[in-house]
Nucleic acid binder design. Structure first.
Length: 354
DNA sequence: AAGGCGGGGCA
DNA sequence: TGCCCAGCCTT
């Protein structure tokens, strides 16, 4: 049985050789920018690196400091977050920036409890900042770490978070450089000890891994119990005025796509709203069905029907918006599909440096 | 403890 | 099609 110290040094040394060059890993005089790291950690919550890469530099260019983020209008933040999903993260991140500016002098706090007190920051994210940015010997556990540690110790069954935290804590405390060990453990899970087809031949822990010894790495951990997706019927009405503007409304702050903008849309759980009721809700001169499509998320199957209407008036919280204006706001990818169905393509706000 | 919350890529 | 991803918050 290898010592914890041996395990941690193997991982840290491996990371030193194989770390990917990711934008949030840039350093100035050997230090990472804590604010930049915080943004990256929030973006990376339940979101793959490849997806974050598409948005990260643009977001940092636009909001380069906690103060800049705190001072920005909320719709600009949601606009920069468009397409990333889990939009509450964007609001929470800005709220965190405001706390940082008001309570911590504009500096990301170093204290674990201060970090956890920030909105949108839980034990994982706080631990990541503490250890990776500030070098403190605190553990972090994400989906990668759960998997790597379960395989290393040959723990069968569904993901056991309590055990993973205990094990990660013991390792982080004994690591020579907790920053390199923690980030290396995640990197290992992301690039070598992957859910499927792990590349055990390239793993620095292969001679210490119980799953590898027993050839059970593919079965560990066992899949999480699945929850069934709810079906939602959405009827979206696209209306365009004489100047080419689009009629839009803002969704409620909470729930699915909270706070994002959309063309007038009615949602029903059981069946799609009928055309007659649709006309009652959206009075117009004429309306016609354009197309339909399915939009799947992890938790929902949304069946969209797209209508195009003529002779609609604004009001009831709905307003005419230019396409350029709309592209600056938060718009879900589902609504981009709706607009695409009538030939409207929003400017991407993914571009960086503009 | 469980459920809600996006979106895309991959087997 | 099902599963997973640098999780967090609410109930």
């Amino acid at each position: 049985m290898a010592s914890n110290r041996k395990i941690t040094s193997l991982v840290a040394d491996w990371f030193g050789l194989h770390a990917r060059a990711l934008p949030w890993r840039r350093t100035v005089r050997g230090r990472r920018d804590p604010y930049v790291s915080l943004v990256s950690e929030i973006m990376l919550q339940q979101t793959q690196v490849s997806r974050v890469l598409e948005r990260f530099d643009g977001f940092i260019d636009r909001f380069p400091t906690a103060q800049a983020l705190a001072d920005a209008p909320e719709e600009a933040v949601l606009g920069a977050w468009s397409g990333l999903g889990y939009y509450r993260r964007a609001r929470s991140l800005q709220a965190a920036a405001r706390v940082i500016c008001e309570d911590h002098g504009g500096r990301v706090p170093r204290d674990l409890d201060d970090l956890i007190a920030l909105p949108g920051v839980g034990r994982y994210t706080a631990g990541a900042i503490c250890s990776i940015v500030f070098g403190q010997p605190v553990p972090i556990v994400d989906g990668n770490v759960v998997r790597v540690l379960a395989r290393l110790d040959g723990i069968d069954g569904p993901p056991d978070h309590a055990r993973s935290w205990a094990r990660a804590d013991e390792l982080a405390q004994q690591a020579k450089t907790p920053a390199l060990f923690n980030e290396g453990l995640m990197e290992l899970g992301a690039t070598v000890c992957t859910p499927r087809n792990p590349r055990c031949g390239d793993c620095p822990l292969k001679t210490h891994c119980k799953a590898h010894a027993a050839c059970t790495q593919e079965q560990i951990p066992s899949p999480k119990p699945k929850s069934k997706r709810q079906v939602l019927h959405a009827s979206s009405m696209v209306a365009i005025d004489g100047r080419g503007r689009v009629l839009v409304e803002q969704r409620p702050a909470d729930g699915l796509w909270g706070g994002l903008w959309q063309v007038p849309t009615v949602e029903r759980a059981s069946k799609a709203v009928g055309l007659r009721e649709l006309r009652d809700l959206f009075p117009c001169r004429s309306i016609g069905r354009v197309s339909a499509f399915r939009f799947d998320t992890t938790h929902r199957e949304v069946r969209f029907v797209v209508y195009k209407a003529i002779g609609v008036r604004a009001g009831g919280g709905r307003q005419w918006m230019t396409r350029r204006g709309l592209s600056q706001l938060g718009v879900s990818n589902a609504q981009r599909r709706v607009l695409d169905a009538v030939g409207i393509e929003l400017d991407s706000c993914v571009r960086s440096g503009t």
